[in-house]
Design a protein around this nucleic acid. Structure first.
Lengths: 207, 207
DNA sequence: GTCTATAAACCGATAGAC
DNA sequence: GTCTATCGGTTTATAGAC
């Protein structure tokens, strides 16, 4: 699996993994700005400084490349989130921190804003991915709100499920407005306000 | 301006206006499902039962067609909303009714979900349109929440501006989740819950 | 007002040399 | 592992006939 490959011309051993990562990063940039359909392999190739055929040596086709970008991002994001959170209330605080840190990661936000809209089309190559992503996100957040509910900290009339749906909707919707008009929107403060309104806890965007 | 034109072959007088409307409707469908970049004039033409050149006789180019679709939708939506609303509190109730009625207008929701994501790219032909749209939407909703605030009906710690931003974010985010998984999301109920959480009023999705 | 034909550009993917 | 060359397909838009 990780056996060395002979140097073919002048490259060092096992350059593939690094190249793959470089390509993934460029592809993220392209898909974030232009979406899947409109983002071209030519753009990715130009960004990497490689030919289109070079890209397709590492990824079978364009759909495979998109899937790899999303898979890679998910792994990184889940890891970061797990590092921040533990249980119930504190995982919601972690969410605010995540929103705060995202403000310096416009590319990532743009990727999901662009692709989530595009992928609502049933035949989009990432459609299933996003359906699953939201199912998982709702289930995860519902657990956090369930924990609050058991401690009587959920506002009257609010269910754990609806709070989960509303939290995700808030985050997504804020991102769209923020991308269109960054100075007008304070994402983490808005999220803190939503969570405060829907629970009996006072959340804050401050560290 | 509305002077009759002579019949050229077999058509009746002033067929243009009707044809334009037919094209706009087809274009809305195409842009809603595929977005601007990926939705093609060919698709529009096929839907109308006309050639691509036929479409371009009525609209100078693709960008003009998109602008016309958005302009037409805005006019219709503003009209519908004005018909429902009057002042302050009741205009928020109108918003819930709008969310409810939208549940049977998937095309429209899909159009805005798809295009708002796509148009976050600064060089997208509808970028300015959406920036303006959100500025106007926030200003309009802020007035409604200001009216509530003056009556002491805004939840402590919530400003009219942030409530406006949060309301729009909630609506947008719900639409994305609803498009991906319609059975899992009750848009109007969720919106009512958000408004109830952020004000001292109990909103309901029921008529 | 609508069509056919076509220009000119761009796209994804493959073949094959090195 | 990367390149050049190329095929077949798509796109927007224009020219010109009817």
């Amino acid at each position: 699996m990780t056996a060395r490959q002979p140097p073919t011309s002048r490259g060092p051993y096992r350059k593939s993994a690094a190249t793959r990562t470089t390509i993934l990063d460029a592809a993220l940039e392209v898909f974030a700005v232009s979406g899947f359909h409109s983002g071209s392999l030519r753009d990715v190739a130009r960004l990497v400084g490689m030919s289109e055929a070079g890209i397709l040596h590492h990824f079978a086709d364009k759909v495979t490349l998109l899937a790899a970008v999303l898979e890679h991002r998910d792994a990184v994001d889940i890891e970061q989130f797990r590092r921040l959170s533990a249980d119930g209330e504190s995982s919601l605080h972690a969410l605010i921190q995540l929103a705060k840190s995202n403000e310096s990661r416009e590319r990532i936000i743009r990727l999901y804003a662009t692709l989530s809209g595009e992928s609502t089309a049933p035949d989009h190559p990432a459609h299933e991915h996003f359906v699953d992503r939201y199912v998982r996100a709702r289930a995860f957040l519902r657990e956090s709100f369930d924990a609050l509910d058991r401690r009587g900290l959920l506002r009257a009339g609010v269910s754990a499920e609806s709070a989960a749906i509303g939290t995700i909707a808030t985050m997504d919707g804020l991102q769209t407005q923020w991308l269109l008009d960054p100075d007008a929107i304070d994402m983490s403060a808005q999220l803190a306000q939503y969570l405060s309104a829907v629970t009996e806890i006072t959340f804050s965007a401050e560290v």
